[in-house]
Amino acid sequence: MQRRSGTPLPGADSALPDPRRRQLLQALALALGAPAAARLTAGSASLAAALSWADSPAGAEAPAEVFSETQLEILRVICAHVIPATDTPGAAELGVHRFVDHQLAHVEDAEARDQACHVLDALDGQARERRDTGFAQLAYDDQRALLEDLEAERNGFGPGEKWPFKKLKDLVVFGYCTTETGATKLLAFDPVPGGFRGSIPLESVGRAWFS
């Protein structure tokens, strides 16, 4: 791998508002030399577009396509339990429940949709049985206890609930990790690595790569 050192693109800092865009251009300039990088981004419609990325919320305020309002609310609560807000925003705040609904409507099959509805209903049913209230209205710890029972296939939950739940959880994880926040803050996102290195200390990245 050759890495030529180069100067950052002329005017990069003033002309480019988004710091990541600047970062990317600098990475390109470092790898290729500034003139080559400039030529490349000028000639390529998509690279230019990619450089102008901005935050785009995963969940627009579109109406649910698969879930009822109750089911969507349960899923929102699940999102908050699976990936809560910490030093980075959580899945519920980023609208991942709506992304999952949209994904189920278009990218998954009818069986996956039925199973997803089934497991949300099962959680609600258990909540009513135990506390006489809907899952979303339970106290936080009671919600968590139910979810843990579900994953452990106990207290009214079996494999018929566990595996549909895992699928749903998988969609939540996918939805979160493919948001800009998930991909760039929880994970390490490196659009132009500049070459491949087969061995680096994990601690030098400190996180998992997005890919």
Binding site: A45, A49, H102, Q103, H106, V107, D109, T178, T179
Partner: peptide
């Protein structure tokens, strides 16, 4: 070359289904 690569470098959060293709 270059002009007609509309999906090059487009991150997943800029793709409606995170990069997947709708089943239909």
């Amino acid at each position: 070359h270059r002009q007609d690569y509309p999906m090059e470098g487009v991150p997943p959060w800029k793709q409606e289904f995170g990069g997947k293709v709708p089943l239909d």
